[in-house]
Every structure is written in C-alpha cells, then in structure tokens.
Design a protein around this nucleic acid. Structure first.
Lengths: 152, 152
DNA sequence: CCTGAAAAGTAACCGGC
DNA sequence: GCCGGTTACTTTTCAGG
C-alpha cells in the first residue's frame, strides 16, 4: 500500500496519541474530518496501524525491574528457533524479542517484579531449554526512552 | 496510588486495545460503564497510563531496518550521561534507550531507512561525541515481539 | 464533502456502604 | 466521605446521499 503525505501526517499524530480527534487532525493538515476517518480506517485494515494500546508505567503495576537478555543458541536448528519465537510471543514477561545476526542470536527486553522472580523465570525458560548455550543478563538502571514511535 | 483488582483488570484490556469501549469492559469485570471511565480517567491523571498510542508497522512507513546498539562511555562524567539521555529522547530514530549496569553503559533500539542512513546517524551522533569510547551494532533479522505489554 | 444517526465519552446528581 | 449507579448532555465516529 502506498502512503501519501496526508497518511504520514495522520500517523505522526496517532503514534503519539491515538485518541487525537479526527476533526482536530483534519484542520491541522487541511482535510475534512470524514476524510481523516476514512484514511484511519484504511490504515487499520491494511495493517499499517497494527494496534492502539495504552502505555502503562511499569512501577505502578509492580514491575519495576527491566532486564536485557542476550541469548546464544546451538547452531543448525531452525525448528528450535521458531519454537522459541512462539514461546517468547506467548510469555507476558517478555516485552520485546529480537532475532539478530551477530555474536548472539536473540535479544530480549523483559520486566520482572523482583530479581527472585527473574531468577525463577530463567530457570523455567532458559535453563530448561537445552538448545540455549548461554545467556547474559544486563540490568537496566534507567529506562530513558521506552516507546514505539517511528521517525516519520 | 494503590490499584485494586478492578484497576488491574481495566489496564489488562487497555494495554492491548485502548479503544476497548468502557461499557464492554464494564460487563466483563462487573462494573458500570461510568465507573470504568472514572477509573480510566484517574489512571490517566495519576500517570499509571502514560500514553495511548498507535503502533505502526515500521516497514509500511519506510523504516524496515531495526538496529541494536551497545555503547560504552568514558567513566566519571555524570553530566555527559545526562546530556546524552536528553539527546536520545529528542532523536526520533531512537525508539528505546536503556541506561544499564554492566560491560556497556547504554543499549539502544533504533530504526533506519537503510544502512547508509544508519551510517550517517552514527557519524552525526556517535563519532561526534568524544565521550563515547566504543559502540557495537547488531542487526535485527526478525523483530519477533515488539510491544510494551506488561504481565499484569 | 456534507448531513443526520448511532455510539462513545463526560459531567452532575443520587443513594448505599 | 468515598464509590458505584443512573440520567442527561457533549463529543466523536459512522453511513447514505
């Protein structure tokens, strides 16, 4: 799907605040409210807008710890990789999961209530998986920026 | 602020879909639509809900490349760290920025239109900063999971 | 693009714990 | 007095012309 500069302008508003009213966007970019709404609906249908979500403060709900994990897998096992991806998608502790090229194979961003909880997680997920050769955990001191905003 | 189980239930819905109607949430958790909305408003005011945003498909808007960057800073310069944090907040290419404890000092998740663009970015931001001793870039092959959903 | 209709969200008031 | 419920009102969104 081809996006024109109107679509991009609309997305620029919505990626910061998806409750920004369509008519307000309209006056700012020079389009009627209906036109803006039609475009938003199409962007949703086509999947350019993947979701509209509330960003929650992690400490407010008891998940103050942020951890970064680098994982190394045993090579030559395509199935295990796919299986692990599915597992990561299903686990709520895992906020983000990147399959990468380089020294390690996966990078995870995850939240935990406490170090003890995280340790239990590593036992249940990492140690149990014999295809994981090693993993390295890094503790986040300050989540300076935590968003999904693109430079459009 | 203390959250009861109603608040947590509401957040559970909104962190997946912030357009989920209040009355629909109401019937599912056993509360009137108004009560739900009042709670949502308070959650917004207090900052438990930090933002409500649209998640945009990066490739659809011309940012298919995801890069992870680990940065090492020269030690003993608190000011430079703060200054760098502010810079990261301002740069749209930087989706996420974590100040970490361990071998390196920062971990960044960033999006780029092309490798050439990313190279230009490293010149403008990393090489120009003399406090950065070294940095390591990892290319993401598959952004398996990319969200901000907490395990509440 | 404009209009009216439907739906969602907002605000003010009432009642019970 | 604090919350939840009901009602009336406003804003936003949706559908036909």
């Amino acid at each position: 799907m081809q996006l024109d500069h109107f679509d991009l302008s609309i997305l620029r508003y919505l990626q910061v605040n998806c409750r920004h009213p369509a008519d307000a966007i309209g006056v700012e970019i020079g389009l009627s409210a209906t036109a803006v709404q039609r475009r938003i609906r199409r962007l949703r249908e086509v999947g350019v807008i993947q979701a509209e979500v509330a960003v929650i403060a992690p400490d407010a709900v008891g998940y103050p710890l942020v951890l970064l994990v680098e994982l190394v897998f045993a090579k030559g096992l395509a199935d295990t990789i796919d299986q692990f991806k599915r597992q990561m998608l299903a686990l709520p502790e895992v906020q983000q999961c990147y399959y990468v090229a380089g020294e390690y194979d996966f990078m995870l961003v995850l939240h935990a209530a406490s170090m003890a909880d995280y340790e239990a997680f590593t036992r249940a997920v990492f140690f149990k998986n014999s295809n994981i050769i090693k993993f390295r955990t890094t503790v986040v001191m300050d989540a300076v920026k935590r968003g999904l905003t693109l430079p459009i």
